[in-house]
Design a protein around this nucleic acid. Structure first.
Length: 309
RNA sequence: GGCGUCGUAGCUCAGUAGGUAGAGCAGCGGACUGAAAAUCCGUGUGUCACUGGUUCAAUUCCAGUCGAUGCCA
């Protein structure tokens, strides 16, 4: 069964995406597909702002997908996300419900909407182990020898250098089979707030998260044997709190550096959404400062949903 | 009260042997196709505290004022 209709709610962190998505899902008989690269993990709750009770607040429970389905320490990536989300979205559609993608991971959302096709090269762990000992200029030279091109940004970007070389070395010529969604009606909504307000909300929220046991959450992950390296690679809360717990920084330093890092993250998210618009995705921006009722009215009058309910 | 030190970008500070100034961080913009809350790139004009003086020319020297700080009373 083909997908006919898809809705998306996106926005930077701390703009109230989930609460709005739950309301929209009720009104439109939808199910939520999370596009959040960190809420996929069990046990990462306070630091990711994961609150599963939100999906049942104020009415019947709204089904959600792609949250809480991996254990900490497991790896995941955009390629996996696109495959998983495609399958889930298709399945929701087959039950004649509306799939509602909600999240702040720009790359994940774009991979779906722009139907990314990925190289057939899987991660090559042996290659990556070797590549660890090569510095950037060596990687860049090899890429150029193999006919790859690099932008200035790429030349200093280790992750990208390694993947590019991996693709050049290991992709196979045969066309990668890929699953694409046929989206006939797409409604993308973005929640918009002045940067200043986002920053204030982030700071307030950080204080609350710390009061609600964020440090203890990270500590218990470490106690359960989750590697500090993995936590560090997650960034933000898990990075800075685990560094604090390892006594690499004071509580004050942890707080202020983390605060700054989240502010910067929100900015990077906005850059993603602007890029999506430049690439042709129409985003209907919702004023984040009005209440959810008004936001819902905007959603309802912006699009007409006639085949769900 | 006396003596000294300091007052330069949002913050911490450098500097100008007199020709109106520069780093780190923050901020801002951007990149992104198998780690994306990751990773990376670009971007620095500000009454050089205020008021006078010396000088062709003062943020730089001198005096005073205000503010901060230290020591002595």
């Amino acid at each position: 069964m083909e997908i006919h209709e898809l809705m998306v709610i996106l926005g930077p962190t701390a703009t109230g995406k989930t609460a709005l998505a739950v309301k929209a899902a009720r009104a439109l008989n939808a199910e939520i597909v999370s596009a959040d690269s960190r809420q996929i993990y069990r046990g990462l709750d306070i630091g990711t702002g994961k609150d599963l009770s939100e999906y049942s607040q104020g009415g019947t429970a709204v089904p959600y997908h792609l949250i809480d389905f991996l254990n900490p320490g497991e790896t995941y990536n955009t390629f996996q996300f696109k495959a998983d989300a495609t399958e889930v979205i298709r399945e929701i559609g087959s039950r004649n419900k509306l799939p509602l993608v909600c999240g702040g991971t720009g790359l994940y959302i774009e991979s779906l909407l722009l139907d990314y096709h990925f190289s057939s090269a899987n991660r090559q762990e042996d290659f990556r182990r070797e590549a660890e000992h090569m510095d950037n200029s060596v990687l860049a030279r090899q890429i150029e020898v193999l006919g790859g091109t690099l932008s200035n940004e790429d030349k200093a970007n280790r992750h990208r250098l390694i993947r590019k070389l991996e693709v050049l070395l290991f992709s196979e010529e045969k066309k990668e089979m890929r699953e694409s969604l046929k989206i006939e009606k797409l409604h993308v909504f973005g929640i918009e707030l002045p940067r200043e307000i986002i920053r204030r909300r982030i700071t307030d929220r950080l204080i609350i998260r710390l009061e609600h046991g964020m440090v203890e959450e990270v500590k218990s992950l470490l106690d359960d044997g989750v590697s500090p390296k993995w936590l560090d690679a997650l960034g933000l809360e898990y990075r800075f709190v685990s560094r604090y717990l390892k006594k690499q920084m004071s509580y004050q330093e942890m707080f202020s550096q983390l605060e700054t890092a989240i502010h910067q993250f929100a900015k990077r998210q906005s850059t993603w959404f602007r890029r999506m618009e430049k690439r042709g995705i129409k985003i209907n921006w919702i004023d984040g400062q009005v209440d959810d009722m008004e936001k819902m009215e905007f959603i309802m009058e912006t699009v007409d949903f006639n085949c769900h309910g």
